[in-house]
Amino acid sequence: MKYAARRFLHSLFLLAGVSVLSFLFADLAPGDFFSEMRLERGVAAGTVDALRARHGLDRPLPVRYAAWLGSMGRGEFGYSLAYNSAVGPLLRQRIPGTLLLTASATFLAWLMAIPLGIWNATRRGTWSDSIFKVTLAILLSIPELLSAVIFLAIAVETGWLPAGGMHAPGAESQAAADRFRDTLRHLVIPVGVLVLGMLPVLIRHVRGSVADCLDSPFALAARAHGIPRRRLLFGHVLPAALNPLISLFGFSLGTLLSASLLVEVLVGWPGLGPLFLEAIMARDFALVLGVVMSSTSLLITGNLVADLLLYRADPRIRT
């Protein structure tokens, strides 16, 4: 419990650090939401300054940071000038989309990676292993960008799957079961792309971890005692091999969120990704900051979960 509290506090410090740094960086950035306006004719020189003053952009940095913290307390996370609304509600609309996508991809990828990795680790040195290795290496070299573009084109051409988005038009009026099936169909392509991207890395690590344990003295001793292969593998080797995989789960979240951003933009999935890109294009710093904070929170929460899981699974780190 003390460990959990310590990790939680640490995460909060990290979040605070990221927010301060982002604020500093945004302050150093040349231009803001209104600077494009200055170039337009028909906008008086005073107008831009007045607008900036009205939105409080001319106040000193610490004051703005304090104001931002205050608005965070109210759940607003600042004010988006491009959307003309508080940032908080915008984020709350989009976070579930990203969560749904990344959670299903993580679940599916691990579900496939663990059996494949174990199977692979038990037949090292055979020809099927070599073929598998080459396949993984090639899969690893296909960027998500490319597979997403190809999958989408195939989906459109064949009409098997919807071409993007999260819901079919008019889905709101459908029955709950139909709506669920519709969302599932929309999930196939983005989740497929993400899983394909994660799978080679995960399988390699599972394989490596299980292989290490199979080669370790305790496994050899168990085998010498005549413990059956199946029980050795699932009863002794697998629990020991799981610990590094839990840390990997934490590490892989960052990559997954990054890949998810790209895939969301590509398939028009209503997650944080498209919102982020729009915010960047509009130079809407409050929204950029909001998305940065949400993605950081997602990653930190994931890492926290992984840490706590590891704490439960591995007594060696309980110091």
Binding site: S22, F25, P30, S258, L261, I280, M281, V291, T296, L299
Partner: peptide, 18 residues
Amino acid sequence: LALPWLYLLLAVRAFLPL
């Protein structure tokens, strides 16, 4: 490392001229 790196990359890019 607290930020997913593509978000970090884009965030840094966001604050620079387009």
